[in-house]
Simulated assay, not measured.
Amino acid sequence: MTKRFAATAAFVLLSTVTVSATDIGATFTSACPFGDCAAGISLSYLGEFVIPSGQMEHGVEFGGISGLDFDAATGHYIAISDDRSDKAPARFYELDIDVGASGLKGVSVVKHVTLKGKNGEPFAAKTVDPESIRLGKDGIYWGSEGDAKVLLPPFIRVTAPDGSFVREFPLPEGFAPTADKLTGIRDNLAFEDLAVAPSGDVFVGVEAALYQDGPKPSLTTGSLSRIIRFDGKTGEPKAQYVYPVSPIPQAAATAAAGNDNGMSEMLALDDHRLLAVERSYAEGFGNNIKIMMMDLAGASDISATPSLAKNDQRVVPARKSQLLDLRAIGLVPDNIEAMSLGKAKDGTDVLILGSDNNFSTSQKTQFYAFKVLSRPQQ
Rank of each mutant, 00 (worst) to 15 (best):
F5H: 13
T8W: 12
F11D: 09
V17A: 07
V19E: 15
S20N: 15
S20E: 14
A21T: 07
T22W: 12
G25C: 10
T27A: 11
T27I: 13
T27C: 09
A31H: 07
P33I: 10
G35A: 11
G40H: 04
Y45D: 12
Y45W: 14
E48A: 12
V50E: 10
M56C: 06
M56Y: 08
H58V: 09
G59F: 05
V60M: 04
G64T: 04
G64D: 05
I65T: 02
A72T: 02
A72M: 03
T74C: 02
I80V: 14
D82S: 03
D82W: 05
D83G: 04
D83E: 03
D86T: 09
A90F: 09
A90D: 05
A90E: 02
R91Q: 03
R91P: 01
Y93R: 01
L95T: 02
D96A: 14
G100A: 14
A101M: 08
G103L: 04
K105L: 09
V109G: 06
H112Y: 13
V113N: 06
K118G: 09
N119R: 13
E121I: 13
A124S: 12
A125W: 10
K126L: 10
D129L: 01
P130G: 06
P130V: 07
R134N: 04
G143C: 05
G143Y: 02
I156S: 00
R157H: 04
P161R: 05
D162N: 07
G163W: 00
S164L: 00
R167K: 11
E168L: 02
P172W: 00
E173Y: 01
A176V: 07
D180Q: 07
K181A: 08
T183M: 09
D193H: 11
D201V: 07
D201G: 04
V204P: 05
Y211T: 02
S225C: 13
I228L: 09
P237I: 03
K238F: 06
V242D: 12
Y243N: 07
N259H: 14
M263V: 15
A268Y: 11
R279S: 05
G286K: 03
I289L: 14
I289H: 08
I289F: 12
M294V: 10
A297E: 12
S303K: 06
P306W: 11
D312V: 07
Q313W: 08
P317T: 05
P317D: 08
Q322G: 03
L324W: 05
L326W: 06
L331G: 00
V332A: 10
P333M: 07
D334N: 11
I336P: 00
I336F: 13
E337W: 12
M339C: 06
L341N: 04
L341W: 01
K343N: 03
A344M: 00
D346V: 00
G354Y: 10
S360N: 15
S360Q: 14
T361N: 12
S362I: 15
Q363E: 15
K364C: 01
S374F: 09
R375G: 04
P376K: 08
